[in-house]
């Protein structure tokens, strides 16, 4: 299985590189999680990954983040990658400001950068707070700032809204869309939520049993915001693909 493993993360490029995954295989013991997956993400593209639990979408994301090794295949990602997890994963013993600075290489002298990133997520006045005093939504915004401060060319979001209440989730979705529009990283969002995927993504992919089984361009539908019929059709199609309803 280890024959053709290559993980080129350090490829030197000046411009924003798209993500290229070719023939990715990954198994945990006897269980094949990803089987021969191909994926291309263009620069500045917002991709949403849907799929039932255990279909391998989180594994794919972890592979892109460099947290999981490929058994076989080629994974080509930009050097500057940032990830936001389902939980904020802030260091509780460091103040918010340090937690954001933790995103950049040298933590010294990066305070201005951190403050700018906190300003963008609307938490500039919480720079000196302890993470434990933040609400769930605020903590997740700090995690977002920590990702942004890396100036990522690839932003990975692993169900970042799943643990938030409905209202906070809507606010966070708008914030993420706004920030991605401003910074234009290639973005991959893993989610369970079909509405969220259609609303946020330029492209919606459906994964099943370690492969991509559907790939739809949603820019035409969501950007015009008028094509209600097409939106409805797409939603029904996606839900059927996920095994819900008919």
């Amino acid at each position: 299985m280890t024959s053709s493993t290559t993980l080129r993360q350090e490829s030197v490029r000046e411009t924003r590189a798209p993500v290229e995954v070719r023939g990715l295989h990954r198994a945990y013991g006897a269980r094949q999680v990803i089987r021969g997956l191909d994926l291309r993400v263009q620069a500045g593209e917002f991709l949403c990954l849907l799929g039932p639990s255990g279909c391998g979408k989180t594994t794919l994301l972890r592979t892109l983040a460099g947290l999981d090794a490929a058994d076989a295949g080629e994974v080509d990602v930009p050097t500057q990658v940032a990830i936001v997890f389902q939980e904020p994963r802030l260091l509780p013993w460091k103040r918010v400001d340090f937690n954001v600075r933790f995103g950049v290489a040298g933590t010294r002298g990066a305070r201005a950068q951190a403050l700018a990133a906190l300003e963008e997520v609307g938490l500039a006045d919480h720079a000196d707070a302890w993470p434990g005093t933040l609400s769930g939504g605020q903590a997740q915004r700090v995690a977002l700032a920590r990702a942004l401060v890396r100036e990522p060319h690839l932003l990975l979001l692993d169900e970042p809204f799943a643990a938030l209440d409905a209202l906070t989730r809507i606010r966070m979705q708008a914030l993420v869309r706004e920030l991605v529009d401003r910074h234009r990283p290639a973005t991959v969002l893993v989610t369970h939520d079909v509405e969220e995927a259609i609303l946020l993504g330029d492209r919606v992919l459906v994964m099943a049993e370690g492969r991509i089984v559907r790939d739809s361009d949603t820019t035409g539908i969501t950007r015009d915001a008028a094509d209600a019929v097409a939106l409805d059709v797409l939603r029904r199609d996606l839900l059927r693909e996920l095994g819900v309803g008919g």
Binding site: A65, G66, L67, I83, E87, R89, F102
Partner: peptide, 10 residues
């Protein structure tokens, strides 16, 4: 998970 986060941060 915190260790993993730090690894992901390089």
């Amino acid at each position: 998970r915190l260790v993993e986060m730090a690894v992901a941060m390089g």
